[in-house]
Nucleic acid binder design. Structure first.
Length: 391
RNA sequence: GGCGGCAUAGCCAAGUGGUAAGGCAGGGGCCUGCAAAGCCUUUACCCCCAGUUCGAAUCUGGUGCCGCCUCCA
């Protein structure tokens, strides 16, 4: 039975075939570290954690890389608002991110590259793009010329003509310097007082998209297997990454593009701008009335996420939280019972010296429930289907 | 407007052409001195309208909702 996954690039399910048989190189777009993570982030990283673990369980050797965007307008804004050094801000929220993820039982990535530590690779890539004629300098900025890349729009399914009409109403800073409305900044000239790095175009800092192209290349190579992130990254972020990387490497940036659905509140996307978000630590640390004063178990939050298919939206409601907490209780009691009494009952799993160690789970793959588990997960990581036998 | 996704009971959700799993919540019951826990039991013409088919929740078209198109997981 092959592993099937939905590829955003082709908008269809495909059999998974990594570039190098038996190995998976996976890159996941991480967070911009200027604030605490909310449930949307929790969902995303739980999902990719499970997919990564499943691939490992399936026998693949997985190398998983996730970046931190640690230089960005929002970080500088936050620094200005709080009167703290911008590097202090990124330090605080990287720490917080790691704590939150650990609580959610998310395995650490093999590598966490940071934009500010990747300047040579970023500058190399921008220089190559300028040299090859895909980018142009304009008053200290450097922009990518989207019209030079014929396949621009392939991932997000849009054409340059449509978008130039649609975006004409909102020209932002620097848009006058662009040759096409969708051209995007690879390098931004430093404004007075801003942190900056030296470049052939003057002091400045990288645009958002270029760091991922550069770090993927450095950490995983020219053509990776899976590039993952939230659906909101499809355009422009991932579209731009493709444009930047593929004209230089002449190879696909990633074979499979995967995007997770959002966490909704009252039918709307949870987001900062709508001010309808709950942070992970807020949810986990606050005694909840609906749980009769108990706190939500982090594993129940994980279960809440996995009870929905990763591409579908999930609604964050009190009912769902209560149900997840209850289901986790039941599941946990079952697991503890097995752990405490499995040996006396003669369960074969309990004979395993690593029994109970989650990092070395070895469940027989021949049982019928495990067959159902595997065929559900093999079908585009259908975790709700896979959990059927366990809850 | 362009592109994409989703539509199954109060809530979550399985199901991929042959007359609807499961969980949570709710109802009823067993047990108990009472309660909790536990156990048993109970709750669906699969949004609607057309079409394809001997037969559709499952396929096609319409419809409704959501997301992206500006920073966003």
């Amino acid at each position: 039975m092959p592993l099937i996954l939905y590829n955003s690039l082709t908008r269809s399910k495909e059999a998974f075939q990594p570039v190098i048989p038996g190995q998976v190189r996976m890159y996941c777009c991480g967070v911009t570290v200027y604030d605490y993570c909310h449930l949307g982030h929790a969902r995303s990283y739980v999902v990719w954690d499970v997919i990564r673990r499943y691939l490992q369980w399936r026998g693949y050797q997985v190398r998983y890389v996730q970046n931190y965007t640690d230089i960005d307008d929002k970080i500088l804004k936050r620094a200005a608002e709080t009167g703290q050094d911008w590097q202090r801000i990124t330090q605080i929220y990287i720490q917080a991110y790691q704590e939150d993820m650990a609580r959610l039982n998310i395995l650490p990535a093999d590598l966490y590259p940071q934009a500010t530590a990747s300047m040579p690779a970023i500058l190399d890539l921008i220089e190559a793009l300028v040299t090859e004629g895909y980018a142009y300098a304009a008053a200290g900025d450097v922009y990518y010329a989207v019209e030079k890349f014929p396949r621009y729009g392939q991932l997000s399914g849009r054409s340059l003509d449509q978008d130039s009409a649609g975006s004409s109403g909102r020209l932002g800073d620097g848009d006058q310097k662009k040759q096409h409305p969708l051209d995007f900044a690879l390098w931004k000239a430093a404004k007075p007082g801003e942190p900056s790095w030296e470049s052939p175009w003057g002091a400045g800092r990288p645009g958002w998209h270029i760091e991922c192209s550069a770090m993927v290349k450095v950490c995983l190579g020219a053509e990776i297997d899976i590039h993952a992130g939230g659906s909101d990254l499809v355009f422009p972020h991932h579209e731009n990454e493709i444009a930047q990387s593929e004209v230089i490497s002449q190879r696909p940036l990633a074979r499979y593009w995967m995007h997770n659905g959002f966490v909704n509140v009252g039918g709307e996307k949870m987001s900062k701008s709508l001010d309808n978000f709950t942070t992970i630590r807020q949810l986990l640390d606050t005694p909840l009335e609906v749980l009769e004063g108990e706190k939500l178990d982090p594993m129940a939050l994980r279960l809440f996420v996995l009870q929905a298919h990763y591409r579908k939206p999930i609604d964050f409601t009190e009912d769902a939280i209560v149900a997840a907490q209850q289901s986790w209780q039941t599941l946990k009691e079952g697991l503890l019972f097995g752990y405490d009494h499995g040996l006396q009952l003669g369960w074969p799993d309990a004979q395993d010296p690593d029994f109970g160690d989650p990092s070395s789970m070895r469940i027989s793959k021949i049982d019928e429930p495990m067959q159902r588990f595997q065929s559900a997960m093999d079908d585009d990581f259908n975790s709700p289907g896979a959990l059927v036998d366990f809850i």
